[in-house]
Write a protein that binds this DNA or RNA. Structure first.
Lengths: 191, 191
DNA sequence: GTCTATATGAAGATAGAC
DNA sequence: GTCTATCTTCATATAGAC
């Protein structure tokens, strides 16, 4: 989605700065004041672009999913084998090591927060998982045609989520590297 | 810790009702009004027992850890082999299936929430993990004396955390059962 | 010790001047 | 379209009557 006029540009700018803010503070501790300050837009103006905080969240999730799809599309083109593609996915926490050990997984931490008592919003957030899962299933289907691709995709996602939770809790980078190695070994064993 | 006088009894009662509340709503969405209502204590009275919300949290975590220690002590006495003890731990999510699929892991979800921008409180919450990890290390030490018990304990904890995150996100009970089976197979393979 | 009333601040959201 | 001033609500926290 390309921002056309000025309103669209500012709206897009708010979405992009709020993306980080949401990751760093979580949804419930992220206020409109925070959003306005981060985007450098006057406090009351945010309401011209978004009616409610829920609407901001939805827009940010949509933006994230667009980014993810573009990334996965690039991987599809540039990485030739499903095994290497799965390893590329697996290595996200290593590449994002600083952020993962500090703030956890952007998808997982948000889902966990919203799942308690904001399930409508959690359903929105969960679409991030869905996007990855669909792609992961395709890769597993290519890698092990006879396997249960749904379970395999879920399993891999689960491993990365558990690792992100503990990596953040203990600020432990070596745990990330170690567990990612295990996952790669497991992927190799499937071929 | 046994509640002696009436003040101690009420304080203890507040802690126990807040334990569930914290699990179901999370820390930042749990208000003093919620706490007072759940414990059936007049709103302002809570401040007679706890000066701040942080203090309530600390008391609840201490209570949880007491409970955990008692539970682990019972397991030590009643379950004879380290393998069976580790499987007993592993099966917590199956036994707590309704809660885990609805609210996630009480330790993990709290750690994730507090880890964003309340790291002092997160350090308090993390002691829950520490308590389990210490016990898990002991069991692995007995099971595989030559293994890296610290890594094994972390790995097992990580698996249960990942499973809780996804189980809650998708409200998926079969995922819990399936993944617990994998973990048990893995434990068996270590012997 | 117990409870009510209230102070204080920050949140989400809105009205309306420019 | 842009921004300020403000409304309302609800949060944590306190003062002080009983």
């Amino acid at each position: 989605m390309v921002a056309r006029n000025k309103t669209e540009q500012i709206r897009q700018h708010i979405i992009e700065t709020t993306d980080d803010l949401l990751y760093h503070k979580g949804f419930n501790l992220m206020s409109f004041s925070d959003i306005a300050a981060a985007a450098d837009v006057p406090r009351g103006n945010i309401y011209y672009y978004f009616k409610t905080k829920d609407e901001v969240l939805t827009a940010v999730i949509e933006y994230r999913i667009e980014q993810m799809r573009a990334m996965l599309e690039t991987w599809n083109e540039e990485i030739k084998t499903p095994l290497e593609r799965l390893k590329r996915y697996t290595n996200i926490p290593v590449i994002e090591l600083e952020d993962v050990t500090r703030y956890g997984c952007p998808m997982g931490s948000l889902n966990t927060e919203l799942g308690k008592s904001q399930r409508t919003l959690q359903a929105v957030s969960r679409k991030q998982y869905d996007t990855f899962l669909t792609w992961l299933k395709k890769q597993f289907k290519e890698l092990v045609p006879d396997g249960n691709t749904k379970h395999l995709a879920m399993h891999l996602l689960m491993l990365t989520q558990g690792l992100a939770v503990l990596a953040q809790s203990y600020q432990d980078k070596s745990l990330v590297r170690r567990e990612i190695n295990y996952i790669e070994t497991w992927l190799d064993s499937l071929v």
